[in-house]
Amino acid sequence: MDEFEAFLDAGGIVEPNDDIPERYRHAVFRFIELHANSEYMGGLTERDWIPKAPGMHRKLTALAKSQDEIGHAHLLYMVAADLEVKTREEMMVDLLEGRTHFHNVFHYRVHSWADQIAVAYLVDGAALASQQAVFKNCSYGPYKRILRRVIAEEGFHMRNGEEMVLLMAHGTNTQHEMMQEAINRWWLPAVQLFGPDSRPDDELLRWHIKSERNEDLRDRYVQKFVPQLLNGGFTIPDPGLRKDPDDGKWKISEIDWEPLKKTMRNGGPDSARRIADARSAWENADWVRTALDAAAKAHT
């Protein structure tokens, strides 16, 4: 293990055909499975908004984003399954039975189109920041390569989110209010996406699966998004928010992490409905999988 860790510290990239220590293999698997589950659940949420998106252009964008997320999940599940901890089928069943987890931001209800914009802007912005940090120094080759493309595509989503927030910021009073309400609902979940402060002995950091501490990512996010929101004429739903006179940085209130823990155990406000929805999507598409399998067999 010491030798392996020295290899990782020197910037070594682990490939699937290498001799991979068990603990690393399991850690990287769990990390990728969580990411895959989150992309999958995110894609389903996005899908809900395709028929409701205002106008052809927004529908196209919602459709493309949904395809992006499901496609990312597809690639991630391939790499996760290859680590031979669980089969892809097992990962799907675990997710749909509520035995495994997905990111906190997909455990809440998306109330309105403005909420969907807040998700595209605040949540995708947070997800992008955390993926960029993982990509920068990620030791698992196949995952790093997928992240390269995921980041490029998420960057496009982010731009879309920024564009829509600007539109709402400069829109009618009603639009501005709708957007403010959505920001009030989504600010904290977005900030919590980075998770509580990293433990000093975090294996994900030690093995260069992640390259930055959660608190550093969260802080950078706050410094970027607080001024943007204020410039848009919005307020931030944090009475304790202040600018530190010493270093000029924005400081947010202490976060109570207890509700997040419950949410992450699939006990969030909308967890049960989301999982049931994913299950029915899976069951309803059963005939497609059967048909595709049959077609593939007929070809060989």
């Binding site: 493309a64 395809q67 499901i70 496609g71 597809h74 690639l75 391939m78 995921v150 595509e153």
Partner: peptide
């Protein structure tokens, strides 16, 4: 593995 991937202009292979 699939005719389309994250984008409609790319297919996914292993």
């Amino acid at each position: 593995r699939s005719d389309v991937g994250p984008t409609a202009c790319r297919s996914v292979h292993w």
